[in-house]
């Protein structure tokens, strides 16, 4: 099981890259009480039968690992969302793409800690199968609001291929500065009494 919300994001967005998507959009909207996430891709999509089966931890397409009988990415996510009264929904159309929306109730005791978002985005941006990844991140609390947007092709245009240690360290510095800018609006979450 994953420790951080970021671990779930990493795991789920990778699915989109592996589904032959040209373009993947990750949106993260955080407020005082909720984190609403959406992963939208234009990959190969799933038909109705597969769409229902991917929610089962004992289903996998068997392409990456021929003899394997488990696929834990989505089941882990659903379990984590349900544990904290969050939502989960999956829409998919064969040949068109897949959209996964989910949310975490940030005041709930069983919500995982957020984790390190800059290093998560770094790993996703440098994923070898990622052609275009758009990240939209916003934070709106009682202290005010801020947001930033990132695009893989734009970053590659500036830095060159995102695959050597020097380049990735520069990208990390850039991503940390984006998130740092939102820190002023961040509030400590208090557990609800319920």
């Amino acid at each position: 099981m994953h420790v951080f919300i970021c671990d779930f994001l990493l795991d789920i967005v990778q699915n989109s890259f592996e589904a032959e998507s040209r373009r993947v959009e990750l949106s993260l909207e955080e407020t005082d009480t909720r984190l609403v996430c959406q992963v939208r891709d234009n990959g190969k999509g799933m038909d109705e039968a597969v769409k229902n089966r991917v929610l089962d931890p004992f289903y996998t397409d068997g392409i990456k690992h021929v003899k394997r009988k488990v696929g834990l990415g989505l089941p882990f996510l659903i379990q984590a969302c349900e544990a904290c009264n969050g939502d989960f929904s999956l829409e998919s159309e064969l040949g068109v793409g897949t959209t996964i929306s989910f949310s975490f109730n940030l005041n709930h005791m069983d919500t995982p800690p957020f984790g390190d978002l800059p290093s998560t985005i770094l790993v996703l941006m440098s994923h070898p199968l990622a052609e275009e990844l758009l990240v939209k991140r916003s934070l709106a609390t009682c202290k005010g609001s801020g947001e930033y947007e990132l695009s893989k092709t734009e970053l590659e245009d500036v830095l060159g291929p995102l695959n050597t240690s020097g380049t990735l360290n520069l990208l990390k510095e850039f991503l940390v500065s984006q998130e740092e800018d939102l820190k002023q609006f961040y509030i400590e979450h208090t557990l609800s009494k319920a």
């Binding site: 990778q14 990456k64 790993v123 440098s126 070898p128 695959n163 050597t164 240690s165 380049t167």
Partner: peptide, 11 residues
């Protein structure tokens, strides 16, 4: 060291 290629793969 700036030139090491760092990539990722699945399981």
């Amino acid at each position: 060291i700036e030139n090491v290629s760092v990539t990722q793969t699945g399981c």
